[in-house]
Simulated scan of single mutants.
Amino acid sequence: MDTLIIEGSSKTPKVVFNAEKGELLLEGRSIPENSLEFYIPLMEWVEAYSHEVKTDIIVQMKLEYFNTSSSKCILDFFRKLEAISNRGKNVSVNWYFEEDDEDMMEAGEDYNAIVGIPFVMVEQKEV
Rank of each mutant, 00 (worst) to 15 (best):
Y111A: 07
G116E: 13
E99Y: 00
S9H: 09
P13C: 09
K11F: 05
M1E: 09
L4A: 11
F78A: 09
N34Y: 13
L25K: 01
N90R: 14
E98D: 12
I5V: 15
L36P: 06
F77A: 06
V15Q: 00
E37A: 11
P32H: 07
V46T: 10
K125P: 01
L26A: 04
R87M: 11
S9R: 12
R29W: 05
G22N: 02
D76T: 10
L26M: 15
E82D: 12
F97I: 02
E33G: 03
G108T: 02
N94A: 08
K89W: 04
W45D: 08
P41Y: 05
Y96H: 14
Y96N: 08
D76V: 09
E27T: 02
Y96G: 12
E98N: 09
N67F: 09
P13W: 13
V15I: 15
F78M: 15
S10N: 13
I57R: 01
G8N: 05
T68S: 09
L24W: 01
N86H: 11
D2F: 07
C73H: 09
L36V: 08
F119R: 04
F97T: 07
E47W: 06
S30T: 03
L63C: 06
L42I: 06
S50C: 10
N86L: 10
G8Q: 08
E37Q: 07
E126C: 05
S30E: 07
A19N: 03
K72N: 08
E23Q: 00
N90H: 14
S70D: 08
D2H: 14
W45Q: 08
D56C: 04
E20T: 13
P41K: 06
F119Y: 09
E126V: 10
Y96K: 03
F66E: 02
Y39P: 00
G116R: 10
L26P: 08
Y111F: 15
N112G: 04
E126D: 12
V46C: 03
S30A: 13
I84R: 07
A19S: 15
E123Y: 00
E47Y: 13
Y39S: 03
L63Q: 07
F38D: 04
M1Y: 04
V53K: 03
S10V: 15
S30D: 08
N18H: 05
E20F: 04
D101Q: 05
E37D: 12
K14N: 07
L24H: 02
M104T: 01
V127M: 07
P32K: 11
P32F: 06
S30Q: 11
I114P: 09
F97Q: 04
I57H: 01
V127S: 04
P32L: 13
M121R: 01
D103N: 12
V115W: 06
S35W: 02
A48F: 03
E102M: 04
E64N: 09
A107P: 02
H51Y: 14
L26V: 13
N112A: 15
G116A: 10
M61I: 11
P32N: 10
G22D: 00
K11P: 00
E64S: 14
V122N: 07
M61W: 05
E52T: 05
L75I: 11
L36F: 03
G88K: 06
V15F: 00
G22A: 02
K62L: 04
E44N: 14
S71P: 12
F77I: 03
I117R: 01
V16C: 07
S69M: 11
A107W: 00
V91D: 14
I6T: 07
E82T: 06
E44H: 08
M43L: 15
